[in-house]
Deep mutational scan, measured.
Amino acid sequence: TTQFTVHSPEQAEQWKEYAKQKGLEVHVQKKNGTWHVTIH
């Protein structure tokens, strides 16, 4: 599991796309103005 924080919805979307291409599961949670992205 990879977990990191991004600071814009655009970055979060890019990671979603990346994960989809790799066939991975991605979870994005918005918290205090940042987005926590978890890739399984």
Rank of each mutant, 00 (worst) to 15 (best):
Y18N: 02
Q21E: 12
Y18S: 03
H40A: 10
A19N: 01
H40L: 13
V6T: 06
T5E: 11
G33S: 05
S8P: 01
K20A: 11
W15N: 01
E10T: 07
T34W: 10
H36I: 15
T38G: 01
W15M: 05
E25S: 11
V28S: 02
A19E: 01
T1C: 12
A19F: 13
A12Q: 02
K22Q: 14
V6M: 03
A12S: 03
L24P: 02
Y18E: 03
H7T: 13
Q29W: 12
A12E: 02
K30G: 06
G33F: 04
G23D: 05
H36R: 08
E10R: 07
N32W: 04
K16A: 10
V26S: 04
W35A: 01
G23P: 04
G23W: 02
H36P: 00
Q14W: 15
K30T: 07
K31M: 13
K16F: 09
T1W: 14
I39L: 10
W15S: 01
T38Q: 05
T38Y: 07
H27F: 11
F4T: 03
K20G: 05
H27V: 11
W15C: 06
T5W: 11
T34G: 11
Q14N: 07
P9W: 15
T34D: 08
V28P: 00
E13R: 10
G33W: 03
A19P: 01
S8V: 03
Q11Y: 05
G33D: 11
Q3W: 11
Q29H: 12
G23N: 07
H7S: 13
Q29V: 15
E17K: 08
A19I: 03
E17D: 09
H40I: 14
A19W: 06
Q21T: 09
V28I: 14
K31N: 10
V6G: 02
A12L: 13
V6F: 05
T1I: 14
A12C: 07
W35M: 02
T34M: 14
A12D: 01
W35E: 00
K16N: 04
H27R: 08
S8Q: 04
W15T: 01
K30P: 06
H36V: 15
T2V: 15
Q11I: 13
Q3F: 10
T5G: 03
E10W: 10
V26D: 00
E17V: 08
E13H: 08
K31A: 09
K20H: 10
V28G: 00
L24N: 03
E10H: 08
T5C: 11
L24T: 03
H7F: 12
S8D: 07
E13G: 04
Q3E: 12
G23Y: 03
T38E: 05
H40S: 13
I39H: 00
I39S: 00
G23A: 03
K20S: 08
H7P: 09
N32T: 03
H7M: 11
Y18Q: 03
T34H: 11
A12F: 05
K20C: 03
Q3S: 14
I39Q: 00
K20T: 10
Q3T: 14
Q11S: 08
P9K: 15
S8A: 04
K16S: 07
E13Y: 08
E25D: 09
V28H: 01
I39R: 00
T38C: 05
H27W: 09
K30A: 10
S8L: 06
W35Y: 10
A19D: 01
F4R: 03
P9R: 14
K16H: 05
K22T: 10
G23F: 04
K22H: 15
W35S: 01
K31Q: 12
H36M: 13
V28A: 02
T34K: 13
W35G: 00
V6S: 03
H40W: 15
V26Y: 11
T38R: 04
K22A: 12
K30E: 15
E10L: 08
Q11R: 08
T34R: 11
W35R: 00
Q21K: 13
Q14M: 14
T34L: 15
P9D: 12
H36Y: 14
L24G: 02
V6N: 01
P9A: 15
W15D: 01
Q21F: 08
I39P: 00
Q14E: 10
G23H: 06
G33H: 06
T5S: 08
T38V: 10
